[in-house]
Structure formats: C-alpha cells, structure tokens
C-alpha cells in the first residue's frame, strides 16, 4: 500500500499510466462512442484526404482510417497482452525452476534458454507464422510470446538464485516446506513487482513484434491491427502519393503506446529499485 502511494506520486509512472489509459479508452470505447461505421465499411474512394466525413481520411480500400485506428489499436493491444502473458508465464516458470533447482536441471534449462536467445527471434517468428495456418490475433499473440520468453527466463533465474539464499527460505526449509510450495510461496511473491515490470516490457515487445510481422504481410487475417494498417498503406504506396493519413496515425499510435508503457516501467523501476530514486 505504501508502495502504491509512492507509485501514485511518481510523475513518470502516472504520465505513462494516463496515456495508456487514454489509448485503451480510445480502443475500447471509441467504436461505440466516436464512430458509426464498421472497420471494413467503405465510406469513400482510394486515399480520400481528411474531411468532415472521415476525420483521418480513407485508406486504399476507401475505409475510414479513424475507425480503423480504434479497431487496430484494440487488436494490437490484444496481441501484445496475449504475447506478454505467454512469454511471462513460460519465462517465469522456466526461470524459477532453473534458479531454484541448481545443478543439472538448471544447466539444462538455461542451456535451452541460451540457445534460443542466440537465434534471431524474427527468423523464428517468420517461420512459425508461415507454418501456422489459422492466423487469428490469438495465435499470433501466442507465436510471439513463445519466441520472446528467454529474456524473462534469464532475468527471473538470476532473481531466484539470489532469493534462494535468503534466510526466510532456509527458515521455510527447516519448517518442512517442500520445493513446489517454496517456489510458489517463498520465492515468487518476492518477484511480483519484478515480474510485473518484465510483463510490461514483454507487452511492449509483443505490440512491436506484431507490427513487424504484419508489415511483412504475416499479420492476422480478417481483422485490423496497427501492423496491417501499415502493411496496406505501404503496399498501396501511400508514402509516394503523399497520403500521410494512411500511415502517420498508425505509426504515432504505435509509438505513443509503447513509449507510455516504457515510461510506466521506468517509473516502477525507480520505486522498486530505490537506488535509482531521484535524490534531488
């Protein structure tokens, strides 16, 4: 509670938090409040400039960019969340096991992790995306998450091995606490803030990975995301014809969302690692 109070006084965290909230509100409430057309509904011709009918103009299919932006942000955030959950879950599980087990199990788990880290994730992403047929937003999130966990695993392993030597863990052992309970009750809770921060980073990475894949044409079918918006605008040469409304809004939203998430993360880092706190 004390930490929460301090967090609420951190300018960085609060700035990030309010921007993220605004983006979320735009994506979730926008479609009902701010527009009355659907994401795939044609409202004009090819690359109509912004006007009273279409605030941010139309895209290559004549669809309203402003509306697409809401649905696109929604999908991107969703994919980011799925990727963040998957990566954090796998990373924390493997990291905690490796850090707590030590010995052969630790070496095996970290060996796998380290090998995966050396493979450029974009390669794995592209291969997986091509291999998986049903490309919904959820599968995409899962694919991104499955390739992103090794960094979390490494960080969590380091945390776990240092927590393992704490006195309360020794006390728990001589109180007869078993290994599983030890990890879940004596070690994990001490990493909550850390894991939450790792999750935010994975979420940010997930949003960016989606944009990258979609721009390459490997995005989700039957739906709009910030990445697919950019994909189509590039394919129809919006840059060359000067249709800035087709790609600038998506780029700005991508940047704002990731920037504010990272800002929140920096704010939390400051609180949870007191050595970074501003002294003046």
């Amino acid at each position: 509670m004390e930490l929460l109070r301090i967090l609420l006084r951190s300018n960085r965290f609060m700035a990030g938090f309010w921007i993220v909230t605004a983006v979320l509100a735009f994506a979730l409430l926008g479609p009902t409040l701010l527009t009355d057309v659907g994401p795939f509904q044609r409202v004009g011709g090819l690359f109509n400039p912004p006007s009273r009918d279409a605030l941010l103009g139309t895209d290559n299919f004549g669809r309203d960019v402003f509306t697409q932006l809401m649905y696109g942000t929604r999908t991107s955030l969703y994919i980011g969340l799925v990727a963040g959950f998957v990566a954090t879950f796998i990373g924390v599980t493997i990291g905690t096991l490796a850090g707590y087990a030590s010995g052969v199990i630790e070496e095996a788990l970290m060996g796998v992790t380290n090998v995966l880290i050396t493979i450029p994730p974009i390669v794995v992403l592209i291969l997986l995306s091509v291999a998986v047929d049903a490309r919904t937003a959820t599968t995409m999130g899962i694919i991104i998450g499955v390739t992103a966990w090794p960094w979390t695993a490494r960080a969590v392993r380091a945390q776990t091995s240092s927590l393992r030597t704490r006195e309360h863990v020794a006390i728990a052992r001589i109180s007869g606490v078993g290994s599983l309970e030890m990890m879940l009750v004596e070690i994990l809770p001490y990493m909550f803030s850390y894991i939450f921060m790792a999750f935010i980073l994975q979420l940010t990475g997930g949003i960016l990975a989606e944009a990258t894949l979609s721009m390459l044409g490997l995005g989700p079918f039957q739906t709009v995301s910030l990445g697919t918006l950019l994909h189509w605008s590039l394919l129809w040469e919006s840059v060359r014809v000067g249709a800035w409304w087709a790609f600038i809004p998506a780029t700005v939203f991508l940047s704002i969302t990731t920037f504010s998430l990272i800002l929140m993360n920096a704010g939390m880092d400051e609180i949870f690692n007191p050595t970074l706190r501003h002294t003046r």
């Binding site: 704490r166 006195e167 309360h168 020794a170 006390i171 001589i174 809770p189 001490y190």
Partner: peptide, 18 residues
C-alpha cells in the same frame, strides 16, 4: 528438524514478508 531448530541473524530477512 522437529528436534533441531534454528534462529538466524537477520530478523528482517528471515520472516516471509507476505
């Protein structure tokens, strides 16, 4: 451990804070 128990140095670190 039912017969041999211990108290450690750091009273701040030996209780689970949660």
């Amino acid at each position: 451990w039912r017969n041999v128990q211990a108290v450690f140095q750091d009273p701040f670190g030996s209780l689970n804070a949660f």
